[in-house]
């Protein structure tokens, strides 16, 4: 099972359905699914970083403990260079441009998902849905190039341990 990749493929499919008159449901679900694809990509790696020796079922359980708001907070800190020194010292410097790009896309897609799912006053169009899917796809590609780096490791464990790391010296 590769849930993140499957979700991304599904998002792509939804963004291209109904060529002449796309349904709002398809376009909105494309955006929402693109966000969840990236969410699952990052939280699967975070669970792996924190529980490498765990059985898959235990890792999936660990993965459920990640919180959307907390990850957004962490992404904002990495993206905007507002990491506490205790965390910055773990990665040796400010976050790389690639990691900031992934963090930025996560924040943007989370907000887009919220609008797509709940803001029925806005009209969702195909360009928007396709760009959201492309944003997720680009984040996937970038993440693949940095996921084994120390900064990515600190980024991932911060999803769960940010407050602990923030207060450590």
């Amino acid at each position: 099972m590769n849930l993140p990749a499957d979700l991304l493929e599904q998002a792509e499919h939804l963004s291209r359905r109904e060529l002449k008159r796309p349904r709002q449901a398809s376009l909105r679900r494309a955006t929402s699914t693109a966000y969840y694809a990236l969410f699952h990509l990052l939280t699967a790696d975070a669970a792996l970083a924190l529980g490498q020796q765990l059985q898959p079922s235990a890792r999936f359980q660990l993965q459920r403990s990640f919180n959307h708001t907390q990850i957004k907070e962490v992404c904002g800190r990495f993206q905007q260079n507002t990491l506490p020194s205790s965390i910055e010292s773990l990665i040796g410097s400010a976050a790389s441009s690639s990691l900031k790009g992934v963090a930025y896309s996560f924040i943007v897609l989370q907000e887009a998902r919220h609008s797509a799912d709940y803001d029925l006053n806005s009209r969702w169009d195909r360009a928007r849905a396709k760009e959201d899917v492309e944003r997720a796809r680009d984040a996937f590609a970038t993440w693949k190039t940095i996921r084994k780096t120390p900064e990515a490791n600190v980024f991932l464990i911060s999803f769960l341990l940010y407050k602990v790391l923030e207060s450590s010296r």
Binding site: Q79, K100, G101, D125, E131, R135
Partner: peptide
């Protein structure tokens, strides 16, 4: 669009810039 938003942050924008593409 991403580069534009990140440049705004680098220039000290106090609000978070969300970007979207629309028809």
């Amino acid at each position: 669009m991403t580069a534009f938003a990140r440049t705004l942050l680098d220039h000290g924008l106090s609000r978070f810039p969300y970007v979207s593409l629309n028809e």
